[in-house]
Design a binder for these strands. Structure first.
Lengths: 346, 346
DNA sequence: ACTGCCTGCTCAATCGATTCAGCAAGGAGG
DNA sequence: CCTCCTTGCTGAATCGATTGAGCAGGCAGT
């Protein structure tokens, strides 16, 4: 009723209590819908709180209830790294969707710089700023992940961590996906001398995709040539240079992600090699890039936003005490476009 | 010294105090480097705190100090919308960089669904979960933005809000950018009958780019044909269909962002029209997409991560009481590639 | 009429860190 | 020798919400 001017005056429980002529406890209990508060009083307090614009102070609530209503996304990397990759975008879409629906907030915790591997973990782990954490994109040999899981704090890992097999995690069938795309090159197109540009080998994703690649080659598929990149476009280009120099009869390249595949495409093109005419090329991830290139990239679609959704759901359940069975694995799907040699059907 | 087992036992100030044999106050003051605490005691407390793994409880600290150390990114849209657009990614890169460097955290506040326009604002505004807010991608007619700014809470707006001219904001020179790219088409390539696919007209960005387009046409540049899209790829394709049907002598299309330009490219291609041979095409934003298409898209590069960096810096300064002059505008740059008709220099 | 129980609220402790007033010990100054 | 100041710490209040214990009044049962 009274026009509130500009000042930031916080409305506390005490204000509502004073207005209603009851105690602070009564207001707190009324708003929490406690059965021992009369329904007429509840009504009155609710409308009064609404009118005064009362919103519970999150710090006080967190302190008392020992719960913040916030979950942290921990990424042991710099912000540049995180938000630069569309993978995280997709993951965030899924996370935010579930968190919003269940009234939780999202705290994003990246690392100030590459050195402080511990900072991102500790900040959340100890300060109780988050009720739980989702860890994405950690290296397989990152001991902090183990520490975090061991600490007893609710944690959901995104991706496989064989070293922490009992942790709650959400991953995708990378081995199968890599195998499928490799077999597509080998069996559907009859290609031999297929090379793989892998990701950094301290990430399980890279390990799995490499394993799938090897499995997909079967035996007698010629030599398996592998060069490691870092998931960045330029490293894909560099790796392609190496491959072309080392391997004369190269017929196909399977890059462990689309960005490296795009780098490969640039290098092949600059050498006058046609894709897929001279060399077939496939990527992995399908986060937008692959749709745009010419030729459109055959790739493996990773359901990253679904991974985010599942991870958030399981973490919130975990926080609420609902037991979670260990690993959950979502299927990836082969998305055939043109760069493998299949006909264009746009 | 004693191996800590799995349990989540919080180490509080009291624990450190007990171990050091001093009062809680002394520990608090020592860690805050208060001058009235002896340097020897400080040393001892610091190492003891380190050893016990003490981390201050963020809820308690926030409650007492009335400051959360967190800033909120408010986006009056769903998570899907936010993280789906590379613009936000870039913005987040800049934000997280500055926040990390200055010890602040990032709370991402999206909306559960399109209806609840108020939710995202109120949650942060009232609960004191954040010390300040950065508002991005709000509609020009969103009254909640005005309310938020009026509330006295530190707020930095991303983009122009002519209706709230006195607010602290960080924007880019969209009018000039749109004008430059339009003039490039008109003057460098001598094109006439240039059409514009605009964004949704309740966003200032769309308004500014349209204004720049009009300015760039000058007079006597033929008819200015404008069709509105929604910044999505499909709407670009749809708009292009309309344009081609309505306007026989069309020589160039300027899409208000790259994704719509990509949609336009698909439509042009499917009709057998060559770009830039038959029709020149330019976009706006330059967030990755434009580099990948064939032909590579001429566009206007928006320094979104720098916008994020500036917005975060100014917000933190504002929170610390450093007065901020109103609007700040960062320059965009014309990035010439191939789709306008310029030679390929890859 | 007395006990027991239910209803509807109030009191006070509590979460953990911060901060100001205050107090004891020691040295300087008169 | 007494006062005053400085140094180095302790005690207690405080931030705002939550929650179990407690208490007053009303009603039913015997």
């Amino acid at each position: 009723m009274s026009g509130r001017p500009g000042g930031v005056k916080a409305v506390t429980l005490a204000d509502v209590a004073a207005a209603a002529g009851v105690s602070v406890s009564a207001v707190s209990m009324a708003l929490a819908d406690h059965p021992r508060i009369g329904s007429r009083t509840k009504q009155q307090i609710h409308s009064l709180a609404e009118e005064l614009g009362y919103v519970s102070n999150s710090a006080a609530r967190s302190l008392r209830s020992q719960r913040s209503g916030t979950i942290a996304l921990i990424v042991p990397n710099t912000g540049q790294h995180v938000f630069g990759h569309p993978y995280f975008m997709q993951l965030l879409v899924g996370l935010s969707e579930v968190l919003n629906a269940r009234g939780a907030s999202l705290l994003v915790s990246t690392n100030p710089d590459e050195r402080h591997g511990v900072v991102a973990y500790e900040r959340v782990l100890r300060s109780k700023a988050g009720d739980g954490a989702i860890v994405a994109s950690a290296a397989v040999d990152d001991v902090n992940v183990l520490r975090l899981v061991d600490s007893g704090l609710p944690v959901v890992l995104v991706g496989h961590y064989p070293a922490i097999a009992d942790a709650v995690s959400v991953a995708v069938t990378d081995v199968e996906g890599a195998r499928a795309v490799t077999e597509h090159l080998r069996l559907s197109h009859g290609l031999k001398n297929i090379a793989h540009i892998s990701g950094p080998m301290n990430h399980q994703t890279s390990i799995d995709r490499l394993a799938g690649f090897r499995a997909g080659l079967g035996r007698g598929a010629g030599k398996a040539l592998v060069v490691a990149g870092d998931f960045g476009e330029e490293s894909g280009r560099q790796a392609t240079r190496e491959l072309l120099d080392k391997q004369p009869g190269l017929q196909a390249i399977f890059a462990a992600n689309d960005e490296m595949a795009y780098g490969a495409l640039l290098e092949l093109r600059s050498r006058g090699l046609r894709v897929p005419g001279d060399i077939a090329l496939v990527g992995y991830d399908d986060f937008g890039v692959s749709r745009l290139t010419t030729p459109a990239l055959t790739t493996v679609s990773v359901p990253a936003s679904e991974v985010g959704r599942r991870a958030a759901t399981r973490l919130l359940d975990l926080i609420e005490g609902i037991a979670q069975v260990g690993q959950e694995t979502l299927p990836v799907t082969l998305t055939v476009r043109e760069s493998c040699g299949c006909p264009n059907d746009t």
